[in-house]
Amino acid sequence: MGGLLSTQTNVLASAEAVSSLGTAIYVGLVLILLFAVLAMAKKGLNGRVFKNPWTQATEQLYLFIENMCVGIIGSHGRKYIPMIATFWLVIFVANVVALFMGFSPTASLSFNLGMALISIGYVQFEGMKANGMFGHFSHFAGPKLGGLMALLITPVIFVIEIVSEIIKNASLSLRLYGNIFGGGKAVHSMNELGHSIYVPFGEFLMPIKLLTVVVQALIFCLLTCVYLSLVTGHHDEEHGEDHGHGAPAHA
């Protein structure tokens, strides 16, 4: 029992072990795997029917992501497909690497924070492009209120919205990090559990981890899509509303 508790206590203590050079090596490994798969898939692109299994898999993935983008963001979501697909491919390959290796880029909080910053930063950029700088920030201020309420509540909502935008970064990165790193740690702990009888209990978690691999890649892309749809989805109605309500508010 004490052994179990002792493994639990240093779950996060050994997290800082991998240096930046190690992360770079693993990122390079993931990219090499990714480009190897893509090069194999690219060979099967000719012809009317894709016979190459890699090509078929990537085609299905592309169609799925296209469906997701168009379904969530709307008809203008087609231009975000390359970004979402790149996120998916990198996260998926890195998660598969995490299944078999001790470390993986997605098991590093710094790497995930970088991806989340890109995702949320791009969402902010798109929001500014769609609504204009002022429109985008007035979007944070919540509904238009008049008189004293505007003075009292709007700043609070504004601060909360800004904080929630920052929290989005943390949530995207922490979710991926916690699932992949925690999955590895769970396997490690269960292997420790069966150490005395030489049974690797942790490896029985492999099916759940396989599910996690797909679901985490899906959720990262899905949430990016949802955030994009939140800032760009109601573009037209928001604009009309702004003009309608803007005049009395300024007067």
Binding site: M68, G71, I72, R175, V215, L218, I219, L222, L223, V226
Partner: peptide, 8 residues
């Protein structure tokens, strides 16, 4: 889609 977002 909605279920996965809620799960996340």
């Amino acid at each position: 889609t909605a279920m996965l977002i809620a799960l996340a």
